[in-house]
Structures are given as C-alpha cells and as structure tokens.
Design a protein around this nucleic acid. Structure first.
Length: 487
RNA sequence: GGCCCGUUGGUCAAGAGGUUAAGACGACGCCCUUUCACGGCGUAAUCAUGAGUUCAAUUCUCGUACGGGUCACCA
C-alpha cells in the first residue's frame, strides 16, 4: 500500500445526523491520513437537493470537531483543490464526461425516463435483473449530432465493455474480479446536466488527489465500474478500503429506528466523547496488543488497516458502557469532577457539600454521567425510607442494634468540631467505639449510612457520606434516624 | 433471482498448516469490603457444514447452508 503523500477524505451527505457507522468511517479515514502524515479532507456531498436539511452541515462540523477529527482541507477552511462543497463543483463534471465520450468510453443516451421504466418493468417480469438495454449505445454519429442539435434531452452513460472481466483491488478483500457483462452502462451525467454520485465521486477524488478511499461495504459492488472509469481517464486508481457495516443484530444494520445509532444520542446518554470514539474504533478493528483503551492520538499510532474486519460487527451497548467506565475511572479526579458537576447539580443543589469527597467516591462507580443525578439526590433531601434498610446480615445489624449504634455515635460525632470534620477523624472516632463495644465497624457505619441516605445503595459508606454532607446535616439525620427507630 | 462479500465462545475478536485456539465485555463462583460498587482470583463457553489437498487443517481448495451487500436520471 502506498503511504507517500497520503490524502484521505471523508465525504458525508448532510442529513442532519451523524450515524455512528459514518463517524467510524470518518475516524478510520482520519487515522490513515494521520498515521502516514497525510492530509484529511472534508468534502460535503450535498447534491441531493431533495434531502436538503437546514443546519445539517453544522452537525457534521460540530461532530468532527468535538471528536477531534480535525480536517486539513474543507469547505470552511479551504485548501488547494476546492471548492469542497460538491454543489459548488457542478460545473466541472460535464466536460469530463464529454472527454469520455470522445474517447469512446461513454455515449449519449436519449432514452426517456418513461421508456426506461417500461424496459425495467419488462425485464423484471421476465425475471432478469433490470439494466439499461443499451438502446442508444451504438447510435450512428450523425444521428447523435442531429438529436443533440435538436435539443433532445439526453444523459451520458458509461460504455462498459461487453465481455471480458474487470478486476479491482481492495486492501482488505484483495483482488475481486467480475464479468463485465454483469455491469450496467450506468448514467454519468443526468438529464439536468448534473453528475450522478458515482461519477462525481470519481472525478472529485481524482481532482482532489485522494490516495485512499475508505467507504462502506455497500460500494463494493460498484467498485469495478469506478475502476473502469479511472482506466478510461487514464487516472491512477486510489487504494480502496471497504469497511463492513455496524449491525444491531445478526440481520439488521444499526439504524435510526433503534434510537441509538447517532453520535448525538450517545453524548446525550452520558457517554464521554473520547470513549465513544474508542469503542467504535474497536468495532470492526482489532489492535495488535491487548490494550483496548486508546486516545485518539494513540489510535493514530496503533491503527493498522490489516486489523480491520471483513465481517459485520454487532454493536454491543454493554461493551461500550464498559469502555466508557474505563475512561471515567482513568480520568484525573479534577477532570472527572469538572465533567460530573453539571450532573451532580441536577439533583444536588446544596452548597454545603464536600464536592471533593463526593467526586472521589462517585468516580469509581460512574459508568455514565447520566447515572449521577439519581445517585446523589438524597443529599439535598432525605426521603422517607423503609426500616428494613437497617437489616444487614453480614454486619449482623437490625433496627434494634442500629438504634443502639446511632445513639452511641451521636455524641461522638457532636464532639468533632466543624473544622475537624474529616473522613479520617470521623472514621477514627467511630472505629474506636466499635472496638470498645467489640463489634465490627460496619455495625456502626451501616446504620449511619442508612440514616443519612435512606437508600440501599449509595456512593460511599457512612464515613464518606458524613464527610460529604457536613456535620449539621449528618447530626440532623442521625437524630431523625433515632426518632424513626424509636417509634 | 443474478453478481459480489462474509462465517472463531452470547458479543467484539487474536490467529495467517502442527497452539493448552489469546485478550476484552457479558455470565457464573470465590476473595476483599463501612452499603452498592471498584478491585483481585477463578470457572464455563468458540473454529457453520460436507468433501478434497496434506504426515497434519480453524488456517489452503471446492461444494452446501446461513447472513450481508448490490442491481435508480439517490447519495
């Protein structure tokens, strides 16, 4: 594979959403460019007027930016081979098609849409694959001239060889050979003078000097026709890398219907962006070593197209969550705190909260940031809870023993001053008491945790919660617990 | 249906003729433990199928099954 002067491109259509599969293609494309110190180019393919969506281009920009997939050339920053928006390139394709006509590799076709519909229908009725019947392929030159002069609407079609085979090379799949007889004389220039996607793609990629084309597997079947086009022009064929789809299950692609197919969905769901990138990189690609956690820069180092998979990969939300969790755990505490704060503040508005301790206990148990609000909601307000909370088999606690424990703790905690209200001091004084009483420290701490939170599961144990919530709230809730247990 | 591609545990996957067939997620069990977790240790679980080549096939070849893709004046 050529690795000199690498130029790759990501060429999305602005649909208003960034499908996770598309983003993965963008990522791989970016990685190849960066790996070989090449250029990553962004080209917007917006020629489908019918599909125009307001603001859709911004979704592309924003997504790539927040992911760190920065492009070296593109519509907004320009570059030597612009314009980078396909709709602004419409004028340049027809001459290339006409060049092909001159070379005998393409021809004018005057068949109407209506005729084609009819032909296709008849073909289908006969059970044959609908293709162009090559009605205009061998029209005499003077007749073509006459029709053209008369202003007859026409399209330009590719003149595919009638026999022989075409072979193209894919970096992953190797050589793939197909009989030319199976290839259709596809339209290059439509009746409105605009190029078809397939044609514009070939011309643009060449004009932009693209050396590596990463695209979805759905283009595998049209690749031979691309090759024929490159050959007809005498252009160098780029290196193809076709990547398989991301599936929801064995038989279905991950699609918008699943509600979790778009990048934005995952951000909203509380995923950390570098973790999203990390996971999708792994879907269909395997690193050499055993490490699975990579930053974007590390991916650039590690990436190798030979680790790409030739079969579709099923998207596993569980694994993605695990990767996200791993990322969160590895975050420096300060960074975690910063990212978690907005989520904490959704349900915990209190100012008298030790955020450092809270962040610290939260971090190793946060898989998704969106899990945070529910987990800290007890801090502001203690909701009524069931007395069963005080039963714990392992520590041998019951509501009765808990009452004892709380009563014993209260004066001790009261004796700690506001300024000495630290985890260490709280723990020491309570564990000493436990020792005195000849019980496990949990015998005291479990009831405290229950009284402070009213919950079965909390971030941190009794000591941490007391430290997080402060002396005043702690004492208040322990008193409430004593009341409840005394009733 | 024609053509093209693919098929290793539940999932992602390593492997590129001879391996105890990695690792991760998940599951299960044990340990640790001031809850739930985290963490540590361990267990179970995979080469779609038939034939051929070979001293030897997960690995090479062919067939079969299954799955996907593609057959537009859409991109």
């Amino acid at each position: 594979m050529n690795t000199e002067n690498v130029r790759t491109r990501f060429a999305p259509s602005p649909t208003g959403f960034m499908h996770i599969g598309n983003l993965r293609t963008a990522l791989y494309t970016y990685l190849i460019a960066k790996k070989y110190n090449g250029k990553f180019i962004l080209r917007i393919e917006d020629t489908d007027q019918g599909r125009y969506v307001e603001g859709a281009t911004d979704v592309i920009y924003d997504t790539l930016r927040v992911c760190g997939l920065n492009w070296d050339e593109g519509p907004d920053i320009g570059g030597p081979v612009g314009p980078y928006i396909q709709s602004e390139r419409m004028g340049i394709f027809k001459q290339y098609a006409e060049e092909l006509v001159k070379k005998g590799k393409a021809y004018y076709c005057f068949c109407t849409k209506e005729r084609m519909d009819q032909v296709h229908e008849e073909q289908r009725a006969k059970g044959i694959t609908p293709t162009y019947d090559r009605h205009c392929r061998d029209l005499p030159a003077d007749e073509v001239r006459k029709l053209l002069d008369a202003g007859t609407p026409y399209v330009i079609r590719q003149r595919v060889p009638l026999d022989g085979t075409t072979t193209f090379h894919d970096e992953l799949y190797g050589d793939i050979t197909v009989p030319n007889a199976d290839l259709d004389d596809q339209i290059l220039i439509k009746a409105d003078g605009m190029p078809t996607y397939n044609f514009a793609n070939v011309v643009d990629d060449h004009l932009m000097g693209i050396t590596h084309v990463v695209r979805g597997n759905e283009y595998l079947s049209s690749a031979p026709k691309y090759n024929l086009l490159y050959e007809a022009f005498g252009w160098e064929v780029p290196c193809y890398i076709h990547v398989e789809h991301i599936m929801r299950d064995e038989t279905h692609k991950l699609s918008k219907r699943d509600g979790d197919a778009y990048f934005g969905d995952f951000v909203e769901a509380g995923y950390y962006i570098p973790a999203i990138l990390n996971y999708i990189a792994l879907l269909g690609w395997a690193p050499k070593g055993e490490n699975e956690i990579f930053t974007l820069d590390e991916l650039v180092q590690e990436f190798d197209i030979h680790g790409l998979s030739k079969s579709p990969a099923i998207f596993d939300p569980l694994k993605m969550k695990a990767i996200n969790f791993e990322w969160i755990k590895r975050l420096p505490l300060e960074e975690f705190k910063k990212a978690a704060l907005p989520y904490i503040r959704q349900t915990c508005k209190s100012e008298n909260v030790n955020l450092d301790v809270l962040a610290r206990v939260l971090q190793p148990r946060t898989e998704l940031f969106t899990q945070i609000p529910e987990r800290v909601d007890f801090i502001d307000e203690l909701r009524d809870y069931d007395i069963d909370l005080y039963f714990n088999k392992k520590m041998k606690t019951t509501p009765e023993t808990s009452l004892e424990a709380l009563k014993a703790s209260l004066p001790l905690l009261e004796s700690i001053s506001e300024t000495d209200w630290t985890e260490e001091n709280i723990y020491n004084i309570l564990s000493k008491k436990a020792e005195e009483l000849g019980v496990k420290v949990g015998w005291i701490l479990l009831p405290i945790r229950a009284a402070l939170s009213g919950k079965l599961s909390t971030p941190g144990g009794g000591v941490e919660l007391a430290a997080i919530m402060g002396k005043e709230v702690t004492l208040d809730r322990i008193k409430k617990g004593i009341e409840k247990l005394s009733a």
